[in-house]
Design a protein around this nucleic acid. Structure first.
Lengths: 147, 147
DNA sequence: TGTGGAGCTTCCCATCATGGGAAGGTCAAG
DNA sequence: CTTGACCTTCCCATGATGGGAAGCTCCACA
């Protein structure tokens, strides 16, 4: 199987497959005489695992951890759960942060006429003319997944 | 006022103030004889405006639009509301996406023993051994704010 | 007057995950 | 034998921010 077929079978772009190899997330693939990478079912399975982890918002670093745990048949499920739980916490924090923004924005948008007059409470708020509500920076971990 | 004082007064780091100048978000500042940038109250006000827009999750590009609208005394509030509404929609999409991940993850974590045994439904799911629930990529706009 | 430290300047690099695209080799079908 | 679809490597861009080096200026204190 060439990289294109592996890409189709896994849903991971060829570009990303090469990148994952480069950063050591997956092992360097064997090559044919023409220097093409060769993939088998097992590699495709691994790529699909990665794809799904990414879809759940895990960073590549977390994905690597999960991948190793997956391949370690003597793992303790507690280790997996810990990674998942940490990620859940991170997601919750980020969601809460965005919901805070959303609440403020909806309120402001609601107060804004949205007509042809210049008067606008949204801008007034941004300009700090009203009460300054200090927002929480809410330090996010490096998620590596926002693009 | 030097850049450090402007930074303190606005909450925007000196590094970012220079960057905003570089990308044209703010006008190049006047310099003293020693080549130091000089800031006045108006500039600090602008920086605070930017800071607040960023805190509400607006991208630098959106912030630039809002800044121009703010400075255009003959703007129509509809234009401002449009930017805000688009951003609200974006936030809602992203929140929904993360809530989807969260829901799946919580379910999986809940099913995982989290003990010293290797059996783990989280890994099983990632490996695709169970039913494959296809997630929505939910293409996000370039937000420029995720770091 | 000298000196040390704080603050300013520019410049380059790193992040995180991904895509774009160029330049060139390879293969298969027509 | 040509054409087009692959593959390869290499470099660059994204968005917003921080780190840090090298070199300048300025102020306070001894």
């Amino acid at each position: 199987m060439n990289i294109g077929e592996a890409s189709n079978a896994s849903g991971v772009s060829a570009k990303m497959i090469r990148y994952y190899e480069e950063i050591g997330l997956i092992r360097p693939m064997g090559r044919t005489g023409n220097n093409y990478r060769v993939y088998g079912e097992e590699e495709v399975h691994i790529l699909r695992f990665i794809k799904r982890a990414r879809n759940l918002g895990f960073s590549l670093e977390e994905t690597e951890t999960l991948l190793k745990l997956w391949q370690d048949k003597s793992r303790e499920s507690a280790a997996v759960k810990e990674v998942a739980t940490a990620h859940i916490g991170d997601l919750e924090r980020r969601i809460a942060e965005m919901q805070g923004m959303l609440k403020t924005l909806k309120h402001l948008a609601n107060c804004c006429g949205g007509d042809n007059r210049p008067n606008c409470p949204i801008l007034d708020d941004l300009a700090g003319d009203g009460a300054a509500d200090v927002p929480i920076p809410a330090g996010r971990k490096k998620t590596r997944q926002d693009a």
